[in-house]
Amino acid sequence: MNLGFHRRLLLVCALFLCWACVGAYGLQCFACLQQISHAACNRMAPQNCTGQDENACYTQVERYLHTGKKITKGCSNRIRCQKGQSLNHDCDRPPRKCTYCCVGNLCNRSNGQQRALSHGVLIITCLALTTVFLPTTAIGLDV
């Protein structure tokens, strides 16, 4: 076995890993209905966004004067979600219902803050791995 074979094998493994991370499951969002905290919601199984126009995740926080807050999360259409988010005003004072949108796998861990790896980050990583491990002879450089 020569070094070229090992590089190609590593490249194939890296591409397979990227496919598994990005394409195997599609977009996933944390999903729950009227939970008391983000942590309680995030302990539930993520939702696979399978709808034709489900391309974003959302978090909706309802604040009440005497009973605290309720959190709902799931998949959404990005444009529809952003329209709801544009109505947010003074979200920390009850009674309020505010929506937060984000795009990326499991990005709705909290109020729309992306803490998980998004598809874009994974794709860029795959491209970087491809250029690093691609044999030089494949791109026309004989060393």
Rank of each mutant, 00 (worst) to 15 (best):
M1K: 01
M1A: 07
L3F: 02
L3Y: 00
G4Q: 02
G4T: 08
F5P: 04
F5L: 13
H6S: 05
R7H: 11
L9C: 03
L10G: 05
L11A: 02
V12K: 03
C13N: 01
A14G: 02
A14E: 02
F16A: 07
L17A: 14
L17E: 01
L17S: 06
C18A: 15
C21T: 13
C21L: 15
C21R: 14
C21K: 13
C21G: 07
C21D: 10
G23T: 04
Y25S: 12
G26N: 06
G26M: 08
Q28I: 05
C29Q: 03
C29N: 02
F30M: 11
F30D: 06
A31N: 10
C32S: 06
L33K: 15
Q35E: 15
I36L: 13
I36N: 13
S37T: 15
S37L: 12
H38C: 10
H38K: 07
A45L: 00
P46S: 09
N48G: 00
N48L: 12
T50W: 00
T50G: 00
Q52S: 13
Q52Y: 12
D53A: 07
D53I: 09
E54P: 04
N55T: 00
A56I: 02
C57R: 05
C57M: 10
C57T: 05
T59C: 09
Q60S: 14
E62N: 11
E62I: 12
E62A: 15
E62P: 00
T67G: 04
K69S: 15
K70V: 04
T72Q: 03
C75G: 00
S76W: 01
N77W: 02
R80G: 07
G84S: 02
Q85E: 15
S86R: 11
S86N: 08
N88Y: 04
C91R: 03
C91S: 07
D92L: 14
D92S: 13
R93F: 03
P95M: 11
P95G: 05
C98S: 14
T99P: 05
G104A: 06
N105I: 04
N105K: 06
C107A: 02
N108F: 13
S110K: 12
N111K: 14
R115E: 12
S118I: 13
H119N: 11
G120R: 01
G120F: 07
V121M: 13
V121I: 11
V121S: 10
L122T: 01
I123P: 01
I124R: 08
T125D: 09
T125M: 11
C126N: 05
L127V: 14
A128V: 09
T131M: 11
L134D: 02
L134Q: 07
P135D: 05
T136N: 11
T136L: 15
V143D: 10
